[in-house]
C-alpha cells in the first residue's frame, strides 16, 4: 500500500486565504490542486511536505477568458476545461492537440494547468505548450503580484520561480493576428508521459512568418524556447526546406538522455521529426487549411 508520510491538511477558501496560509506555514507547506502529480510523489516519498493547503475551493481561479488582447487562464482550470474550451481551440488549437494526449479523461477531470506548470516536470506537456505560446505567469503574494515569462518561470526540473510565500494564480497568453499552432507527441502507450513532444506556433505578416516559436518536452532538464528556431523563422517563407532546417535546429538544441523511453539518438530524431510536423500543421492552420 502506498500512503503519503504524515502531514497537516488545511483548506483555503480563496486566494487571499491560500497565500496567508502559505506565508504562515512556511517552506514546508505545498499547495495541492488536482493532486495527480503531487500525491503520487508523496506516495513514493519523493515529496514530503509538512502541510498541504487544498486550493480546490478557490473559485476565483477557475476561468478561461479573453481580456486586454490576451487569453487569461485561471491556475485551477482543469485539463478537461482546457480540452473542451472553444475559445482556446479557436485561438490556440495547440491546447486541444496536447490535452487529447495528456493522461486519460478521468485524470483530466482533476489535474490543473497551474498544478502542471508548478510541478515543472521536464516531460510535462503544458509547460511546452505555454513556452511555445510565449505565455506569462502571474505570481501573487501578500505584497502584490508579479508577472514572469515562461522562460523565467521554469527554473529547472521540479523548480519554478514561485517563492515559498507566493502562488501562481493566472497564465496569460498574448493574442496576435494571423497565427497557427500545433502539438505533436510520441508516447509509448496512450496517456503516458512523452518520449518527446514538440509544440510550434507561427504568426504571419502577409506571406512571410513574422514570428515563430518551438517548445520541446522530455528532451532535457529544461522546457525553454529555442532562440535559434525563432531567428530562423523570422521573415521566412514556409516550405518543406524551412521545416527541415528548423527541425534540425531543434534537434541540435536539445539534450535528451538514454532511458526506458528510448535512446538519446532516437529522441533527437523525434525532436527533429515532431518539430517538422508541428510546424507544418501550425502553418496550415494559420492559413486556414486545417482545423
Amino acid at each position: 500500500m502506498q500512503v503519503p508520510a504524515p502531514f497537516e491538511y488545511e483548506r483555503a477558501n480563496n486566494v487571499a486565504e491560500a497565500i496567508a496560509l502559505r506565508e504562515r506555514l512556511g517552506p514546508e507547506a505545498r499547495f495541492i490542486a488536482g493532486g495527480h502529480s503531487l500525491l503520487p510523489m508523496m506516495k513514493l516519498r519523493l515529496a514530503n511536505p509538512e502541510y498541504l493547503i487544498d486550493i480546490n475551493d478557490c473559485e476565483e481561479l477557475f476561468y478561461i477568458s479573453e481580456d486586454g488582447g490576451e487569453i487569461r487562464i485561471g491556475a485551477m482550470t482543469r485539463h478537461r476545461e482546457l480540452l473542451e474550451s472553444e475559445l482556446l481551440a479557436e485561438h490556440f488549437p495547440i491546447f486541444r492537440d496536447a490535452e487529447e494526449v495528456i493522461a486519460d479523461p478521468v485524470v483530466r477531470n482533476r489535474g490543473t494547468l497551474g498544478g502542471s506548470l508548478c510541478q515543472a516536470d521536464p516531460s510535462e506537456d503544458l509547460s511546452a505548450v505555454c513556452t511555445t505560446l510565449d505565455a506569462s505567469c502571474v505570481i501573487k503574494s501578500t505584497s502584490g503580484e508579479r508577472v514572469v515569462s515562461m522562460h523565467d518561470f521554469h527554473v529547472g526540473p521540479y523548480e519554478t520561480a514561485v517563492g515559498d510565500a507566493e502562488m501562481l494564480t493566472e497564465i496569460r497568453i498574448p493574442l496576435k493576428a494571423n497565427g497557427g499552432s500545433a502539438y505533436e507527441k510520441v508516447e509509448r502507450r496512450a496517456g503516458d508521459w512523452a518520449v518527446v513532444s514538440s509544440g510550434a506556433a507561427v504568426w504571419f505578416d502577409g506571406d512571410t512568418i513574422a514570428e515563430g516559436r518551438v517548445g520541446l518536452a522530455a528532451v532535457g532538464p529544461n522546457t525553454t524556447s529555442i532562440d535559434p528556431v525563432s531567428e530562423a523563422l523570422r521573415g521566412a517563407t514556409p516550405s518543406e526546406d524551412l521545416y527541415q532546417q528548423v527541425g534540425e535546429i531543434a534537434a541540435a538544441n536539445c539534450s535528451p538522455q538514454d532511458d526506458q523511453r528510448g535512446s538519446a539518438a532516437y529522441k533527437t530524431h523525434l525532436a527533429m521529426e515532431l518539430t517538422k510536423r508541428a510546424l507544418r500543421r501550425a502553418v496550415a492552420r494559420a492559413n486556414g487549411q486545417e482545423a
Binding site: Y9, D54, V107, N109, R110
Partner: peptide, 19 residues
C-alpha cells in the same frame, strides 16, 4: 478505484479523503 465526486469520475487512489 473510480468513484463519482459531485457526479464526475475521479480516481480515489489519488484523492485524499480530506479533499
Amino acid at each position: 478505484c473510480v468513484v463519482l465526486i459531485d457526479g464526475e469520475p475521479v480516481k480515489s487512489c489519488t484523492t485524499l479523503a480530506a479533499m
